[in-house]
């Protein structure tokens, strides 16, 4: 648990994805402990989303309040489920297509990469949780809450997926540099770096700015096919995640419908979002 939180911190700070630590072509993070943290973050997010149901049920009819708590519990369980299922649906094809285009990432490295990206996503979402819970506690408008959640998940999702793409860039850049260094080392040993020249007027007053994990890294030797695969995968992940959230609904809980763990099959995510926008305005 502590190990997982430490690893999460390293991922968020970008320490796990700096060039030197990527030379082996793998991320040095404990995927198992991170998964535990991932589930906990998901539960926090789910609980924050479920607050709305508790508040509205108390507000409308205190006799029905138990349904609100049921919804809160269900949302707490369902958000981690949402992410696991989305990953389960999209990961196999990612791996297969990557292997097809000859990516150097093995399955373990790819899994770690995706888990790290999901961690970023869930950390952002969980940190937005207090804001969501606050609006849930003070708002009676169901469409507003739906849209607020969609926006929060979109922010989390886009940050997580841009983390994925940037890390992928760095992975290939690190490997390229490693190969380059190996071929050079065969010819001449590299000269020691000249520190005095780097800082002519003494060392800098502050440590030099460290790149964040979302910083773009220029990698001229990136295999364009791998890039295309991951770009497509990012879009697919977003679409599948959105629809998965629809299949697993309700997360927020319509105050005028009785509590059910899952709703009947009907419609799709995007129609529902459009409908919420129409109802709000």
């Amino acid at each position: 648990m502590i190990r997982g939180i430490k690893a999460l911190d390293r991922v968020l700070r970008g320490e796990a994805t700096r060039l030197p630590s990527l030379k082996s072509g793998d991320l040095d993070i404990p995927a198992g402990s991170l998964c535990v943290v991932l589930v906990i973050l998901g539960m926090v997010t789910g609980a924050c989303t479920g607050v709305f149901a508790v508040i509205t049920r108390y507000h409308d009819d205190p006799g029905q309040a138990i349904m609100g708590w049921e919804q809160l519990l269900a949302s707490t369980l369902k958000v981690p489920m949402l992410f696991c299922f989305t990953l389960a649906v999209t990961f196999p094809s990612l791996y297969v297509f990557n292997a097809l285009v000859g990516s150097r990432l093995n399955v373990r490295a790819m899994f770690r990469l995706v888990i790290a990206a999901l961690c970023v996503m869930m950390a952002v979402l969980a940190s937005l949780g207090p804001i969501i819970a606050f609006f849930a506690a003070s708002t009676t408008s169901y469409p507003f809450m739906k849209l607020l959640n969609v926006v929060a998940y979109a922010i989390g999702g886009s940050l997580g997926l841009s983390f994925l793409l940037q890390t992928l860039h760095r992975l290939s850049a690190a490997q390229f540099e490693e190969e380059l260094a190996a071929s050079r080392a065969a010819e001449t040993p590299p000269p020691p770096p000249d520190v005095s020249q780097q800082y002519p007027e003494g060392p800098p007053p502050y440590p030099a700015a460290q790149p964040g994990p979302l910083q773009r890294h220029k990698a001229p030797h990136f295999d364009p096919r791998v890039k295309v695969i991951f770009r497509i995968w990012v879009i697919v992940f977003g679409l599948v995640g959105a629809q998965m959230s629809w299949v697993l609904r309700p997360f927020i809980g319509d105050p005028h419908k009785p509590f059910t763990f899952l709703r009947d099959r009907e419609s799709h995510f995007f129609e529902a979002v459009l409908d919420a926008v129409k109802r709000l305005f």
Binding site: L12, R13, I131, L214, Q215
Partner: peptide, 18 residues
């Protein structure tokens, strides 16, 4: 207090946690 957690995470992601 409500706005701080997400701001911290975003700062960290941009590499500004220090």
């Amino acid at each position: 207090a409500l706005a701080l957690p997400s701001f911290y995470v975003l700062n960290t992601l941009l590499g500004l946690a220090g």
